[in-house]
């Protein structure tokens, strides 16, 4: 039997059997996991106030054998992100963060940066940061971590290197950039200004800790937000449940 202790973000909690709970949680070292909290519905000591979705906890758990189910032993609340509960917009964005990361980093796909991104984003939301900006920074960064960054280095058609001069077009179906000589902006091929392109570059490639200082004008935010929304829809291929509540 192997015992583990990890920081974990509680993702989903379901009733299981008579007094147990089935818990999905995201850890830094093992990615997304699912475990059983025996007696979790009645426990007032081992899991008190901990098994709440979108909470950060310190979790003790074990696995009887490799490949077998995880069992939760106890939890201690580290951060309940109280600001998330204060309004529906914050709850919706926090839910979206978790839902998108669940899809990009499913069970058995581990990337510690995904956990760090989730933790930092939930913290920003809880502290009342600008939700539109947080969403854009998160989406751009998460998609890049998941291997779906939009290629902004050169035109996908003529191959010319982009030198941060002039508007560009995003070819949604390819997830790539095109210069205005090769493509015309349409509903499916949205236009991006040079400032928005460099902003998106920074969002996709910058260190997450430095992104909160990134200055983006309202126009840049609108353009990047529109592109990322379409990009997520194209790449993920389905509408996320929480996405419809983000407006």
């Amino acid at each position: 039997m192997q015992h583990f202790r990890s920081d974990a973000i509680i993702v989903r909690v379901r009733e299981y059997g008579e007094s147990d709970l089935s818990v999905s949680f995201m850890t830094r070292d093992k990615g997304l996991l699912r475990g059983i909290a025996k007696g979790g519905r009645k426990s007032s000591r081992r899991f008190v106030n901990c098994l709440e979705p979108l909470s950060l906890v310190l979790m003790d758990y074990h696995q009887k054998a490799e490949g077998k189910a995880y069992f939760l032993d106890s939890c201690r609340l580290v951060d309940s992100f109280p600001g998330i509960r204060e309004n529906f917009e914050s709850l919706s964005l926090a839910s979206y963060v978790i839902e998108l990361l669940e899809l990009l980093f499913p069970y058995n796909v581990t990337d510690p940066r995904a956990f760090d991104l989730a933790k930092a984003t939930l913290g920003f939301i809880s502290r009342g940061a600008d939700l539109q900006k947080v969403r854009i920074l998160f989406e751009g960064h998460a998609m890049a971590l998941g291997g779906y960054a939009i290629d902004l280095n050169k035109c996908a058609i003529c191959g010319r290197k982009y030198t941060a001069k002039g508007d560009g077009v995003i070819l949604m179906e390819k997830g790539k950039f095109s210069c205005l000589k090769c493509s015309t902006p349409t509903e499916k091929h949205p236009l991006l200004s040079p400032q928005a392109i460099s902003g998106l570059r920074a969002v996709q490639g910058g260190a997450w800790e430095t992104l909160k200082h990134l200055h983006l004008s309202p126009e840049d935010l609108t353009q990047i937000g529109h592109v990322l929304k379409m990009h997520v829809a194209y790449r993920i291929g389905k509408r996320l449940k929480s996405a419809k509540y983000l407006q």
Partner: peptide, 8 residues
Amino acid sequence: LSPLDGIG
């Protein structure tokens, strides 16, 4: 309300 479960 639970956006994660699609409940609005």
